[in-house]
Simulated assay, not measured.
Amino acid sequence: MALLAWTRQADHFFLSGLDKAGNTSNPLGSSVTPVTVAQIPGLNTLGIALARLDYAPWGLIPLHFHPRATSTFISKVLQKGDVFVFPVGLIHFQQNSSQNPGIITVANAVLGSKPSIADDILSKAFQVDKSVIDYL
């Protein structure tokens, strides 16, 4: 019988490079640099992940969620150097330099799916009038 052991090493809890800005020259004007167990093995079983977000002026991280979700709306304006922790699965978006994000394109998986999801199902799921779904 083979005995498997995981030896903890300093490198399992370390990542460098988050001081380097991500490339924001894309249609969204944003870049996400994830820091998960894939980058820091020592995070395994801790339930912790983070990301560096870089924005061009008016850059956007569109509406999205992470699996094992809850659905609570939380709003917070961040200043330079601030950190915000998203609860597991919180549906969220981020946008640079605006308190009014304007019209946000919801993920193609919902509003652009093929075959399409019926408007009455979407209006129930988002708890809005069907006319709002038609508008989107």
Rank of each mutant, 00 (worst) to 15 (best):
R8I: 04
H12R: 08
F13E: 05
S16D: 15
G17L: 11
D19R: 11
K20W: 00
T24H: 06
P27T: 06
G29V: 01
S30V: 03
T33D: 02
P34Q: 11
V35G: 02
T36P: 03
T36I: 10
Q39K: 15
I40L: 11
P41N: 05
L43I: 00
G47M: 04
I48S: 01
L50K: 01
A51C: 15
L53S: 04
L53G: 00
L53K: 06
D54G: 06
D54I: 05
Y55C: 02
Y55W: 08
A56Q: 09
A56I: 00
A56W: 04
G59I: 02
L60M: 10
I61E: 13
P62L: 05
L63T: 08
L63V: 10
H64D: 01
F65R: 14
H66V: 10
H66I: 03
A69H: 12
T72W: 03
T72Q: 07
F73D: 00
V77F: 01
L78S: 04
G81T: 07
G81Q: 05
D82H: 03
V83M: 13
V83R: 05
F84W: 11
V85E: 06
L90F: 10
F93Q: 08
Q94E: 12
N96Q: 15
S97D: 13
S98A: 13
Q99G: 13
P101W: 05
V106N: 07
V106K: 02
N108H: 10
A109V: 10
V110W: 11
V110F: 15
K114P: 02
S116W: 02
S116M: 08
I117F: 04
A118H: 08
D120E: 14
D120V: 11
I121N: 01
I121R: 06
A125D: 09
D129N: 14
